[in-house]
Computed example of a mutant assay.
Amino acid sequence: MDDLPLGFGMALAQHPEAMARFAALSEAEQQAIIDGTHAVRSKQEMQAYVENLMK
Results as ranks from 00 to 15, higher is better:
Met46Tyr: 09
Ile33Met: 03
Val50Asp: 11
Gly9Trp: 00
Val40Asp: 03
Ser26Asn: 12
Gln47Tyr: 13
His15Phe: 07
Met19Trp: 13
Ser26Met: 12
Ile33Cys: 05
Val40Arg: 06
Ser26Asp: 15
Asn52Gly: 15
Glu51Lys: 12
Ala39Val: 14
Gln44Met: 10
Arg21Tyr: 09
Asp2Thr: 14
Ala32Leu: 09
Val50Ser: 12
Ile34Gln: 00
Met1Thr: 03
Ala24Ile: 04
Ile33Asp: 01
His38Pro: 04
Ala20Gln: 14
Gln30His: 02
Gln47Gly: 09
Ile34Phe: 03
Leu6Trp: 00
Asp2Glu: 12
Arg21Ser: 11
Ile34Glu: 01
Val50Leu: 11
Ala13Ser: 15
Ala13His: 12
Ala23Ser: 15
Ala24Phe: 03
Met1Val: 05
Tyr49Glu: 13
Phe22Gln: 07
Gly36Met: 06
His38Met: 08
Asn52Leu: 11
Ala28Arg: 05
Leu25Phe: 13
Met54Trp: 00
Ala18Glu: 13
Met10Gly: 07
Thr37Leu: 01
Gln30Leu: 04
His15Ile: 04
Pro16Gly: 09
Tyr49Arg: 10
Gly9Phe: 01
Leu6Ile: 09
Ser42Val: 10
Glu29Cys: 02
Ala20Val: 04
Ala24Ser: 15
Phe22Val: 08
Thr37Gln: 00
Glu45Gln: 15
Met19Thr: 15
Tyr49Pro: 11
Glu45Tyr: 02
His38Val: 10
Gln47Phe: 06
Asp35Phe: 00
Met54Ser: 12
Gln31Cys: 02
Ala24Asn: 08
Ala18His: 14
Leu53Gln: 05
Leu53Gly: 04
Ala18Trp: 14
Ala20Thr: 13
Ala39Thr: 14
His15Asp: 15
Ala39Leu: 13
Pro16Ile: 03
Met19Gln: 15
Asp3Met: 01
Leu6Gln: 04
Ala23Trp: 00
Ala24Asp: 05
Glu29Leu: 03
Asp35His: 06
Ile33His: 02
Ile33Phe: 04
Asn52Cys: 05
Leu6Val: 10
Met54Ala: 12
Phe8Ala: 03
Leu4Ser: 03
Ala28Asn: 06
Ala39Asp: 12
Tyr49Thr: 10
Gln44Arg: 13
Glu45Met: 05
Leu53Phe: 05
Gln30Cys: 02
Lys43Phe: 12
Ala32Asp: 08
Asp3Gln: 08
Arg41Gln: 12
Leu12Trp: 13
Gly36Arg: 06
Ser42Ala: 06
Ala48Glu: 15
Ala11Asn: 07
Arg21Gln: 14
Glu45Trp: 04
Lys43Thr: 10
Phe22Cys: 12
Met46Glu: 07
His15Thr: 10
Ser26Phe: 08
Glu27Ser: 03
Ile34Lys: 09
His38Ser: 08
Pro16Asn: 08
Gln47His: 13
Gln30Met: 01
Asp35Pro: 03
Ser42Cys: 05
Thr37Trp: 01
Pro5His: 05
Glu45Pro: 00
Gln14Trp: 09
Glu17Phe: 09
Ala20Gly: 10
Arg21His: 12
Glu51Phe: 00
Leu4Tyr: 06
Phe22Thr: 05
Arg41Asp: 04
Ala23Arg: 14
Gly9Arg: 02
Ala20Leu: 07
Pro5Asn: 03
Gly36Leu: 08
Met19Leu: 15
Arg21Met: 13
Gly36Ser: 10
Asn52Tyr: 07
Met54Val: 14
Gln31Ala: 06
Leu25His: 07
Ala39Gln: 13
Asp2Phe: 06
Leu6His: 02
Gln31Arg: 11
